[in-house]
Design a protein around this nucleic acid. Structure first.
Length: 129
DNA sequence: AGCCTTTGACCAGCG
DNA sequence: TCGCTGGTCAAAGGC
């Protein structure tokens, strides 16, 4: 990635974070472990994970998501330092061209929670039961 | 059956 | 040109 693209991306992030309208509604999902709790922020859009990489320069695991809406070009990068699971960086690239669906079914909530649990177990190296 | 994640392979940019 | 690194693809498997 060139410096230009990095700067462009940072400018977008600043605008996105400061924007009052079209603000993504966030909610936190708490994942419980025997050695404590940690919180993973979650937004109201549906994402499809299309890749994961360990970023050597940052020593973080980065997951790549894109919005499931085919007309929507929005992408999301989630960075998790293996040793600091609470220190999550989420970067949005692009903008949604539709409003998030309000409300989720119980199945959907359960699935998302299961996904977050998988993510957490992966970070901690715990086996899923 | 369909949706979603995983993960190795592939691709592109850069030094 | 070649190797490294980050980003994406797509087959396979799980739920």
């Amino acid at each position: 990635m060139t410096i230009f693209r990095i700067i462009k991306f940072l400018i977008f992030l600043i605008f996105f974070i400061n924007s009052d309208e079209e603000q993504v509604q966030e909610q936190n999902i708490v994942v419980a472990f025997s050695n404590g709790l940690f919180v993973i922020p979650e937004d109201d859009y549906k994402w499809k994970k299309y890749g994961q990489k360990y970023i050597r320069s940052m020593q973080k695991n980065r997951s790549y998501f894109r919005c499931v809406n085919k007309n929507c070009k929005t992408r999301k990068k989630v960075e998790l330092p293996p040793n600091e699971p609470n220190n999550i960086d989420i970067a949005y690239e692009g903008d949604h061209n539709y409003r998030a669906l309000v409300g989720r079914s119980e199945n959907e909530e359960a699935r998302i929670a299961a996904n977050q649990y998988d993510l957490a177990t992966q970070m901690f190296g715990y086996a899923r039961t």
